[in-house]
Amino acid sequence: MTPQTDALLRTRVLHALDDVTDPEIPVLTIADLGILRDVQVHNGVVDVIITPTYSGCPAMNMITLDIETALARAGIENFHVKTTLSPAWTTAWLSESGRQKLLAYGIAPPQEGSGRGSLFGTVEVACPQCGSTDTSRLAEFGSTSCKALWRCNTCREPFDYFRCH
C-alpha cells in the first residue's frame, strides 16, 4: 500500500460514512453531530474513531453497527470502529449545516455557553416553528439524553431544545 492508495481509501470511507445518521435524529449525519472524530488509514487498514455524546447513550451500539454496514456495503473490509472518550463530546462540534438541519427538523439548536452553573437556567431559546423568543422550559430532560423539552408562549407549540453540552 502506498500513501496515495491509503488517501484514496480514506476518501471512500468518508464518502460511505456520509450516509450514516444518528438513529435518534435521522436528519443529522454522525459527522454533522461531531460523533465521528477521525478516520485513519495505515497500509490499507481503516480505523474509524467515534465518541459518545453521553456516557450512557443507547444509540452507540447502533451507530457502530450502521458504520460497519455502510463500510461493508462500500466494499471496505479491513476496518475497526474505535470509541474514544477524550476530548469529551461537546455541542460546539455540531456543524453549521447540522444546526440548520436541526432547526428545519423542529429542534432548537444549542445556545453555546448556556449549559451549566445557573439555577433555573436563564438561556433564551427561539422557537423553531415561529421564531419567537418568548419561550419557556418545561423539563430539563427531554425525549433523549441530548434534548430538553420547551414550549413557545407565542405559537403555543411544544418543541425539543438540543441542550448545550
Binding site: 451549566r116 430539563e140 430532560f141
Partner: peptide, 26 residues
C-alpha cells in the same frame, strides 16, 4: 489519562444532575 477522560465525560453530565436536583430541592 483514562481516568481523566472518564472524568471529563462524566462531569459534563453530573453538572446537569446538580442543577436539576438543586432546582427541585428549592
Amino acid at each position: 489519562v483514562q481516568l481523566a477522560a472518564i472524568a471529563e465525560k462524566a462531569e459534563k453530565e453530573t453538572a446537569y444532575h446538580l442543577r436539576y436536583t438543586s432546582e427541585w430541592v428549592i
